[in-house]
Write a protein that binds this DNA or RNA. Structure first.
Lengths: 152, 152
DNA sequence: TTCCATTAGTGGTATATGCCACTAATTTTG
DNA sequence: CAAAATTAGTGGCATATACCACTAATGGAA
């Protein structure tokens, strides 16, 4: 493999996605910083809020996130008193999650900042383009990548 | 804030990007698994390979990644003998990075798998759509989000 | 040339995420 | 109903990624 004239990583869908995610993530994080929440945390609080005391598995599925990863991510939010969990009385395997009053207040605060970040982002990128992007991302996220292509 | 009828997180550009990244990342990781590399590592090896013994700062800039994050990410690759670093003789602050012979072999192996992942992905998503997506992502990554919108 | 500002990395700490092995609770089978 | 299979989470470990404070090396100003 000669080193010259190799295509840049701009060809890799995964690499480009990660790169853009780092960039945008930093931007949203910056704007949310005054709230003390990272953008991921704000998103998670929001997801919990719009659910009806969702089970961990349900949250993980919505976010296409590993269940154990969700558990880890939840810890700082529980420690800081924004979120609490309780066992589902009908199925004690299931652990449900809800915001505490403090969590709701914090989410409110963060959402104000989020709106600014989102607004400014869309002003810069273009509302339509952003919408198309999100749609494409949703398509991909919903896709079912059967077993990876077999090894010939 | 009433919980009912709130828009899902599909409205947040950042959340959607992260979600899609998790999904695709898992797919590329799966396909690359036989090589023992994660997709991020394959991407990093590739980036090092196409550069001319790039400085850490240069790599970080290309990948829009924090310099210290790059340092951390590099560690397992150095530990496993795929990558080595050396001080730039003309500026001893600068640390340059190159693949070892073993790293080159491993990259070769990983690239074969990557091509399969990439090919299959594009077959499923559509070549044009994937290209447009990457373009949009590159636009975003290249964007200069001036200071976040001022607090009114 | 000495002192100060800038630049490139490092190390520590914290969150983000994933996989695996394991436990507990339920559901399905025989 | 009791044993086997499935489901929901946990805890440990590893990588991914960021920020901050700090050090070393350079470059420029006085």
């Amino acid at each position: 493999m000669s080193r010259d004239a190799l295509p840049g990583l701009t060809l890799c869908n995964n690499a480009m996605l990660r790169r853009a995610t780092r960039k945008i993530g930093q931007y949203y994080d910056d704007v949310l910083a005054p709230s003390g929440l990272k953008a991921t945390q704000q998103g998670l609080l929001y997801q919990i809020h719009i659910g009806d005391e969702p089970a961990m598995g349900a949250i993980a599925a919505s976010l296409i996130m590993d269940l154990s990863a969700l558990g880890h991510t939840l810890k700082p939010l529980i420690r800081d008193g924004y979120v609490e969990t309780f066992a589902d009385p009908d199925d004690r395997r299931v652990k449900r999650v809800r915001l505490t009053p403090a969590g709701l207040v914090k989410l409110d605060e963060a959402m104000k900042l989020w709106r600014r970040a989102q607004q400014h982002f869309e002003d810069r990128v273009g509302k339509d383009k952003a919408a198309r992007l999100r749609e494409a991302l949703d398509d991909i996220a919903s896709m079912d990548f059967d077993p990876p292509p077999a090894t010939p």
